[in-house]
């Protein structure tokens, strides 16, 4: 199994992050339930799941903050605690608020840098990189959430690490900041780093991630490339509205097509295209009021996939395709 995977990943390289059989239980509540996946260098991997799916808990276990009930996480082949000066290997953003409000941005980074023998000049460098050089001497307490988020990203970059683990980095950023971060993370991945970012928003991931790891209720739901996910889960269909829907439906079904009636009286036809549906309608002699190709957004696909894992939902959103 393992050799299989290494083979498909090419060259048998050690994965940047290797999660295997990871379990975390608090009392009798299992938050992470046997997760196994790998994160590779050189790509942005989106770690997706609804709120409470176990993303943050998994990330905390990656950093040795929470102890797994079972299983393990290896980073570049080693446990986090055995990395020596870990900031030089892994940069993490866990909680943007986690800085003393009375400390200046620069001092906050300096405290971290010193423990891992990272020179003070590097602190100024990363502040420059995230666009915070001008507020370096200001206290964190006066920062907006977006500025704290940037400071957190600066902290993650301190040791020039090969692996980045960012928990909801987009939270609180303004549109300009989101754009900046998107390009920034893609550049970091292009340099050969592994970038793992969590989110509960599919739309954000669609623009950013090359690979997707989807979890729900602590279990793995998907581990695919973004393109595979789109091909597999974006349900396409033809939408047709006619003056005589009953007759048209019968005609379509005679051609062995799956037809569903939508709430507004139109028909949704699966496994075909507009050309064929148009031909059938004209052959039948019904007048067509609307004929279009419909593709579910990835957000819809994500919602469908995790519908069973969402703890609080009024009614099912649809069947898993």
């Amino acid at each position: 199994m393992k050799s299989d995977r290494e083979f498909t990943n090419g060259a048998g390289a050690t994965p940047a992050i290797d999660v295997s059989g990871l379990v975390k239980a608090y009392g009798n509540k299992t938050v992470v339930n046997g997760l196994t996946f790998q994160v590779q260098a050189g790509v942005v991997t989106g770690f997706l799941g609804p709120n409470g799916a176990g993303k943050s808990t998994t990330m905390r276990m990656m950093l040795g903050l929470d102890r797994p009930t079972d299983g393990r996480v290896l980073i570049s082949g080693r446990a986090y605690g055995e990395l020596g000066e870990p900031l030089r290997h892994v940069g993490a953003l866990l909680d943007a608020g986690a800085a003393h409000p009375g400390r200046t941005a620069r001092d906050h980074l300096l405290c971290m840098a010193r423990a891992n023998r990272i020179p003070a000049s590097r602190v100024d460098e990363v502040l420059e990189q995230v666009g915070m050089a001008t507020v370096a001497k200001r206290r964190v307490g006066g920062f907006s959430l977006g500025m704290r988020q940037r400071l957190g990203i600066a902290a993650a970059l301190l040791g020039d690490p090969r692996v980045l683990i960012l928990d909801e980095p987009v939270n609180g950023l303004d549109p300009e900041g989101i754009r900046w971060l998107r390009h920034f993370l893609k550049d970091l991945a292009a340099e050969g780093r592994a970038v793992l970012i969590s989110s509960h928003l599919m739309t954000e991931m669609a623009l950013l991630a090359d690979r997707l790891i989807v979890i729900g209720k602590g279990s793995l739901l998907a581990d695919v490339s973004m393109a595979e996910f789109a091909a597999e889960h974006g349900r396409s269909r033809v939408r047709v509205r006619s003056t005589e829907p009953v007759r048209l439906r019968a005609a379509l079904e005679r051609k062995k097509l799956r037809v569903e009636a939508a709430a507004d009286g139109s028909l949704e036809v699966y496994g075909t295209d507009v050309v064929e549906v148009g031909r059938i309608a004209s052959h039948e002699g019904t007048s067509v009021l609307e004929l279009s190709h419909v593709e579910d957004s990835l957000e819809d696909a994500f919602m469908r996939m995790t519908a069973d894992s969402v703890e609080y939902v009024a009614r099912p959103l649809g069947k898993v395709a």
């Binding site: 040795g64 903050l65 900031l87 866990l94 986690a98 800085a99 003393h100 971290m112």
Partner: peptide, 18 residues
Amino acid sequence: GNEYNTGSIRTSLATVPR
């Protein structure tokens, strides 16, 4: 207590895992 009140205990332990 500052470590716990601000949540920076996580940053600190990620920086010094021992």
